[in-house]
């Protein structure tokens, strides 16, 4: 798994993918920081995190699109699947590489918290809870999009499909608002956005943590299952 993690991490920076992802994320989050914090003279980091969390929806597909689909397209999966590495190690290594880039990007955004702390009022506990939710949500998006990449034959298809899936997850919230009672409850329960709302109120919700971890675990398990099933066909 370590070998795969290292290779995938290198691949992000051998190709423009890693730079594009980090560059665009930081550029867009800087705009949000300017609009929400600097222009409004606000110290409300949770609102900033809430706005930044929508970037996961747009940018996680960039991070995950080639993870599995490119191996399938270029047939490099033959190298991986005939090596002494388990399917869990293969999927886990790739997932952790994407999460490492994601964490590096999140780390870069902590500069906003430092600016707020220096020139405004920052509640460290509140900021830490917000960031925890932000990271968990990002990790969940990466896992879901990695599953999508496993199902697709090429990186471009994987990116478009992942964008569609992420958009649908976001739409769940909008649909939930207008849906009848029980359906609204189900959609809200499943939504990656509404389930993370407690974090954005500064609450450390174990239910939300568990939910994110479940989404991650289930998506990765499904990706492993898809790879295994494909070998039997």
């Amino acid at each position: 798994m370590t070998a795969i993690w290292r290779r995938e991490l290198q691949a992000y920076f051998f190709t423009p993918v890693g730079y594009v992802y980090m560059g665009v994320f930081i550029a867009l989050s800087s705009i949000l920081f300017h609009l929400q914090i600097l222009q409004q003279r606000s110290s409300d980091i949770l609102t900033l995190i809430s706005l930044m969390s929508y970037l996961w929806m747009l940018l996680c597909p960039v991070l995950t699109m080639r993870l599995m689909a490119e191996d399938r397209q270029k047939r490099t999966d033959q190298l991986l699947l005939t090596s002494p590495v388990s399917l869990a190690g293969l999927v886990g290594g790739k997932y952790l590489a994407a999460v490492t880039v994601l964490l590096a990007t999140v780390l870069a955004t902590t500069v906003y918290a430092l600016v707020i702390a220096a020139y405004g009022a920052l509640w460290p506990g509140e900021a830490a809870t917000g960031y925890l939710g932000f990271v968990l949500q990002g990790c969940a998006f990466v896992a879901v999009d990695l599953l999508v990449s496993t199902l697709c034959r090429g990186p471009v298809t994987a990116a478009v499909a992942a964008l569609g899936v992420n958009f649908s997850l976001w739409m769940m919230d909008l649909v939930a608002d207008t849906a009848p009672g029980w359906l609204s409850g189900v959609l809200s329960f499943l939504s990656l956005y509404s389930r993370n709302e407690p974090f954005l109120m500064g609450q450390l919700s174990f239910a939300s943590v568990l939910y994110d971890l479940t989404v991650i675990g289930a998506s990765l398990a499904l990706a492993i299952h898809v790879l295994d099933r494909r070998r039997w066909r």
Partner: peptide, 12 residues
């Protein structure tokens, strides 16, 4: 194993 089309990562 060497498959018919060698599985190589071109960028490396």
């Amino acid at each position: 194993y060497l498959p018919e089309q060698p599985p190589l990562y071109d960028e490396m």
